[in-house]
Design a binder for these strands. Sequence first.
DNA 1: TCCTTCAAGTAGACACTGTCAACATATGAA
DNA 2: TTCATATGTTGACAGTGTCTACTTGAAGGA
Lengths: 198, 198
Amino acid sequence: MPPRPHPARDLREACVDQALAIIGDVGLEALSIREVARRLGVSHQAPYKHFPSSDHLLAEVVRRTYRQFSEHLEARPRSSHPGEDLKSMGEAYLRFAIDHPLHYRLLFGTPLPDPAAHPEMMAEARRAFQLLHEAIGHLKPPTSETDRQLDALFVWATVHGLATILQTAALDQIGLDKVVLAEALPHALHRIGKALAP
Amino acid sequence: MPPRPHPARDLREACVDQALAIIGDVGLEALSIREVARRLGVSHQAPYKHFPSSDHLLAEVVRRTYRQFSEHLEARPRSSHPGEDLKSMGEAYLRFAIDHPLHYRLLFGTPLPDPAAHPEMMAEARRAFQLLHEAIGHLKPPTSETDRQLDALFVWATVHGLATILQTAALDQIGLDKVVLAEALPHALHRIGKALAP
DNA sequence: TCCTTCAAGTAGACACTGTCAACATATGAA
DNA sequence: TTCATATGTTGACAGTGTCTACTTGAAGGA
């Protein structure tokens, strides 16, 4: 009788897993509560017993994706040299964006559910930014907290902007050399290094 | 008899105008062909005589928005000093993002129609990038075309990333000081200046 | 002048979506 | 045992994009 110790929890988990699978396979556009239910062989209303609305399902999916993202950044090759460590992080950031384009777009390229209504989702986002913040903290000589935040924002913006731009299919049409695309991140990291130098 | 010299053209234009109005008012989520038709007092199929699919309507809206964006950039205060001019452009870029958040998100924050299927849309996007490219060209001492493209990409990524991040409602929750938010662009532009210095 | 042709708009249908309401069932506590 | 609550099912409704079939009106050639 107890193959399902927590059947309810199970369905909730299964919904999130299926949603992630759909997004990874086909993209966010194809995600719908009914499709999730269909794949799980339950009625189209069953997921509503665990998520008040489709936004709540999406928020949970986003939360987990942020967590995966943070874990990916934390698993980067570490370096005791702060400058090298920051580069390593930039590379890990962009690698995630390239290896999981659909998941990355989920985080940064689509309208998210209202953040105020889903604080748990934002807690995970904050954690990712915290990682960058720390790496910057090691890099710079002791300075004001404001300055550190400003530099963290600067670095984040550059890497994130690059990831977004490189992912826009638009890019093929914009007429950039292949060399440029390949060199974009190293070059940007080099520029960042120069910008942050004492 | 001729109050409508080109009635067909009129409906097409009216559709695009209404779509832009809807996006500016309520946001992209509320945009639908049927809603456009409803506002115009025509049948739900009338727009299909001018746009093969809803993606084609969206692509046309995006194209116009790119054009507005380019025109906004071109109308920036010019400076004969290349460094100042680039800063002016960065400010104009961010100002557009702040003043027209919904339109900016349309360009850079939502899944666009397939670019390959809508080349006219991408032509306008290319034009916007071209403006930045030129500004960078004036800034740097004559160097390789590849280097110039790399730097253009670097600057674009930083400003675009900043615009995207600052717009994410997420930001309130991430715990940045207000001072940081206000100073983010000037600081980033300052860092860019340092990064690009000879 | 008449006839044809075609562009523009209308009307109805279909499958899909999110979500509400009503019902069924099972599990666990009193 | 009984009863409440959680979980799941079924059916409905309005909204969406898009297909097909129909009407209408204007232009152009015979």
